[in-house]
């Protein structure tokens, strides 16, 4: 247990590029699917149990020392949208830079050398956690929380939503976060024995479709 280190990695201000991404919220707002705090809560719940779960399991597997290249391929296979694969690699590269400066390790260097343009963000996040001395049970929480905190912050900017309401949405999601973190950690524990097929592959087709449409917009606030 290294609680303070976990706080540093999980801090929304950790300089790894997340602030420029809405996690699909900008597309959902434009499509009229998020209009208020209640919609935001449903959006976040959906994202958490789909792409959030997958991200958390990938991060946990990287944190226990599964080959990051194998996980990177598994992440590709679980990300049907090309726009989201691009965004994940971009964010992975930014996470790599921040991680190598904060918790340098030979494992991070090795992954940076073979994926200079970025591996999938959850994989790098898990490896960063490992380099920081954190375990899979920490990595799952960071990844799962990020999957909802990003959209919540973005919707505050996009809809001028009351920031207290947005934070309350996140607070109400705590039991779901616990459950997803536990499920993801359990999947990751099985990967060293069963291989990457033990990782979840849940998906949210509307997030994929929205991301593809969003990537083609000429005018947007967020990169994804």
């Amino acid at each position: 247990m290294n609680r303070a280190t976990l706080l540093v990695l999980a801090d929304g201000r950790f300089p790894a590029g997340g602030h420029a991404h809405s996690g699909g919220a900008e597309a959902a707002v434009a499509a009229g699917r998020i209009k208020d705090a209640a919609d935001l809560a449903e959006f976040c719940r959906g994202r958490l149990h789909t792409s959030g779960l997958v991200a958390a399991a990938l991060a946990a597997a990287a944190a226990v020392g599964v080959d990051p290249l194998e996980l990177d391929e598994a992440a590709d296979a679980r990300t049907p949208s090309a726009a989201l694969r691009t965004a994940a690699r971009k964010l992975g590269r930014q996470m790599m830079r921040a991680a190598r400066a904060t918790w340098p390790s030979a494992e991070l260097d090795a992954l940076a050398s073979v994926r200079p343009k970025g591996a999938h963000q959850p994989v790098v996040l898990g490896l960063a956690a490992r380099s920081a001395g954190l375990g899979p049970e920490d990595a799952v929480y960071v990844a799962a929380y990020e999957s909802v905190s990003g959209p919540a912050t973005a919707v505050v900017r996009l809809l001028s939503l009351d920031p207290f309401d947005a934070t309350a949405v996140l607070a109400r999601l705590a039991p779901d976060l616990d459950r997803v973190a536990a499920d993801a950690a359990e999947c990751a524990r099985r990967v060293p024995i069963e291989g990457v097929d033990a990782l979840p592959a849940s998906s949210a087709p509307l997030l994929d479709i929205g991301a593809e449409a969003h990537a083609a917009w000429a005018v947007r606030l967020f990169a994804s």
Partner: peptide, 17 residues
């Protein structure tokens, strides 16, 4: 570089992109 509505964040607080 896309800045998520906050250029000051991208040039000062989180310069990774």
């Amino acid at each position: 570089v896309e800045t998520g509505a906050c250029p000051h964040t991208a040039i000062r607080d989180d310069i990774s992109a």
